[in-house]
Design a protein around this nucleic acid. Structure first.
Length: 414
DNA sequence: TCTGGGGTCCTAGGACCC
DNA sequence: TCTGGGGTCCTAGGACCC
């Protein structure tokens, strides 16, 4: 019932989330350059005198990337998604910690619960950020959400000991941009009136949905800021960026966004992938690859079963040594969730790829997810679809994909 | 010593159906 | 022999996000 033009949408973003969680555990690192990411076995060592000894970036060797880092590390030029080798050159003395997703998920749950107690209309946007609809919250309209935002920040700190940045705006697009404007520990209020002064001067890349490719293309036309895009002729945008994306660019640059808060969603796909320590060859490293592949399928099966889904589509993703990537997938006559069936379906996909080039990464993906509860009875009567699904499986023995326990004729990679 | 892992959405062509 | 127009599903790839 709320008027769309009077919406109050908040975006809440935890400040350097993983790094900040680590600082709660290791307060002696506060104020230092700390990088999270890379290897697995870099746990701090507790020494006899009670102090901890930490690994530093200096001697890092491997293919990891920086997952996140403290603001002190950012001051040295390190940022998320940077290769660890590069980060090590920039900040050799920075402390290196392994990622601990279980711990981060715990804190993620805590901060979201704290928010939910004040404002229940939450959209999950990953482990460390959410959108919140404040529109119908008592009193929120009176001060454009300022007091609620303050209360949310306090509640999050109370529940976790962690700081966050919040922006309140008329829509998700502006709220998302706004939460970056005053980081860390920020509180930003944006209205339509701020568009010209506070949004248009920002780089186009600041808009959620304008990524590296689009930003580069825009820059090629001399459009660098959001204001530049806003000033561009809409017909010209359509002609150069396509009907859909061009129209969206125009709307976004003018601060228009009617998307609602989505409080519930079902997963569309579940996947597991791994990058090898060194590039592997399908023939040379056949047994290593086969074992890794089987392991991935087992982990995927575990994920599916734990989350209560079976998959009707299975696929693989490969990245070659030159970073080119391919994917293959197959849709089965009936959904599956067990490791052997997944291994076989994924194996059939693998056979459709030219594997003469060395591989850097391999992944397995489950899609077309069906809740396990929905398929426990009518398994056998699932209709078989015509078309590419079955045709795409070249080997006759691979057609028995709907059997819960297949006779293992396919343990090979190629 | 470049470039992780887990996702979503969009596009585009072909198969197939009516 | 020539000639339709939807609509949906499947597959592959790409952009983007956290």
């Amino acid at each position: 019932m709320s008027n769309a033009s009077h919406r109050l949408i908040a975006h809440l973003d935890m400040d350097a989330f993983y790094a900040s969680v680590e600082l709660l555990r290791y307060p002696d690192l506060r104020g230092q350059a700390v990088v999270i990411g890379g290897g697995r076995d870099r746990q701090p060592v507790l020494q006899p005198d009670g102090t901890r000894r930490y690994a530093t970036l200096r001697h890092y060797a491997g293919r990891g990337v920086v997952t996140t880092c403290t603001y002190e590390a950012r001051a040295l030029g390190v940022h998320s998604a940077m290769g660890m080798m590069k980060a090590a050159r920039l900040a050799p003395d920075a402390v290196l910690l392994p990622v601990d997703f279980d711990e981060y998920r715990l804190y993620s749950h805590r901060f979201k619960e704290a928010v939910r107690r004040i404002a229940p209309e939450i959209e999950d946007r990953g482990i460390d950020e959410i959108y919140i609809d404040l529109t119908d919250l008592p009193g929120a309209q009176a001060d454009a959400g300022a007091a609620v935002a303050r209360a949310l920040k306090d509640a999050v700190f109370e529940a976790t000991g962690l700081r966050c940045s919040i922006a309140v705006a008329p829509n998700k697009l502006l709220a998302k941009i706004g939460s970056e404007l005053d980081k860390p520990d920020g509180l930003t209020l944006l209205t339509e009136a701020d568009l010209r002064t506070r949004i248009w001067p920002l780089a186009a890349r600041q808009v959620n949905g304008i990524g590296p490719k689009a930003a580069e293309k825009l820059a090629g036309f001399g459009l660098h800021t959001i204001g530049d895009v806003a000033a561009a002729d809409p017909q010209w945008l359509l002609a150069n960026f396509g009907r859909s994306y061009g129209a969206w660019l125009h709307a976004a640059a003018h601060g228009h966004d009617e998307r609602a808060i989505v409080t519930h969603s079902e997963p569309k796909s579940i996947s597991r992938e791994t990058t090898f320590e060194r590039d592997l060859h399908a023939v040379h490293d056949r047994s290593t690859l086969s074992e890794l592949f089987t392991r991935l399928c087992e982990r995927l099966a575990g994920d599916l079963q734990r989350k209560g889904y079976a998959a009707q589509t299975l696929g693989i993703k490969l990245r070659f040594d030159d970073f080119k990537r391919v994917s293959r997938d197959v849709t089965l006559p009936a959904p599956i969730a067990d490791a052997r069936a997944i291994r076989q379906a994924a194996g059939s996909c693998l056979k459709r790829v030219d594997l003469s080039q060395r591989l850097r990464l391999i992944g397995v993906r489950a899609a077309n997810l069906v809740p396990l509860a929905a398929i426990s009875w009518a398994q056998t009567s699932a209709p078989t679809r015509q078309g590419a699904g079955l045709n795409a499986v070249p080997d006759a023995h691979n057609r028995q994909v709907d059997l819960p326990f297949f006779s293992a004729s396919d343990d090979s990679m190629v």
